[in-house]
Amino acid sequence: MRRMSWFNATSLTLGFVFLYLPMLILVIFSFNASKLVTIWAGFSTKWYGELMRNEAFLDAAWVTAKVAVASSTLATVLGTMAALVLVRAGRFPGRTLFSGMIYAPLVMPEVITGLSLLLLFIGIGLDRGVLTIVLAHTTFSMCYVSVVVSSRLVTFDDSLEEAALDLGCSRLEAFLLVTLPIIAPAVISGWLLAFTLSLDDLVIASFTAGPSATTLPIKVFSAVRLGVSPEINALSTIMITIVAVGVITASLVSKRAAVKRRNEEQAAGRA
């Protein structure tokens, strides 16, 4: 095996420093005692305390969590159905429009999606609030879910479902008992993707949220427009930690499962 060249090692190191240094600075300065964010004045966790007492942030966080859970769950159901349609339904009238509507939101600028949904909600007289944000988030994240799930479905061996039908399952039973458990990892990662997209979204939420319901990103955005603040640093640190722990756990779990499976296969091969 060739060792890594000097050039490759340098570009990787610089690249990862570029990716991680800004967030590292953010985390460090969230523990800064001073209100002046750029000058270090000793270690303190007081900004975390401030954050916990900030009602507006806590309310927004609660709205965001509700919206994310509801929209990602809805999006997973609809997106999985859409994936089944895309992969298995064959030809039907309006298929081109359907696949166009699945892929278009992936490349559509958020400002346009947000604007068009807002105009719809106004047009039908729907008051803006949690419901409208959920509808909006479900619409764009179901497209991501369907892309994730359909890429798994493409490689799914159809004879498994046929075997289930042959052994007496109805179509629905065959799907629930055979197909769904097998594509479950893709469905779960679709849900996680939809969840993070919803948590993360600012633009579409700003269009579709009303005065009664504000999400965390909207709150953060209006706060950071005024400049860097230690409270936002603390909030960012919390969010970065949650995501990092979540992602690393998920990948360790799936890696473990893969290793276990390989060992079992090897053991079975020897027997």
Binding site: P22, M23, L26, D200, P217, I232, S236, M239, I240
Partner: peptide, 8 residues
């Protein structure tokens, strides 16, 4: 991680 935080 949040897009907004990365820009911020």
């Amino acid at each position: 991680t949040s897009f907004l935080i990365r820009v911020y």
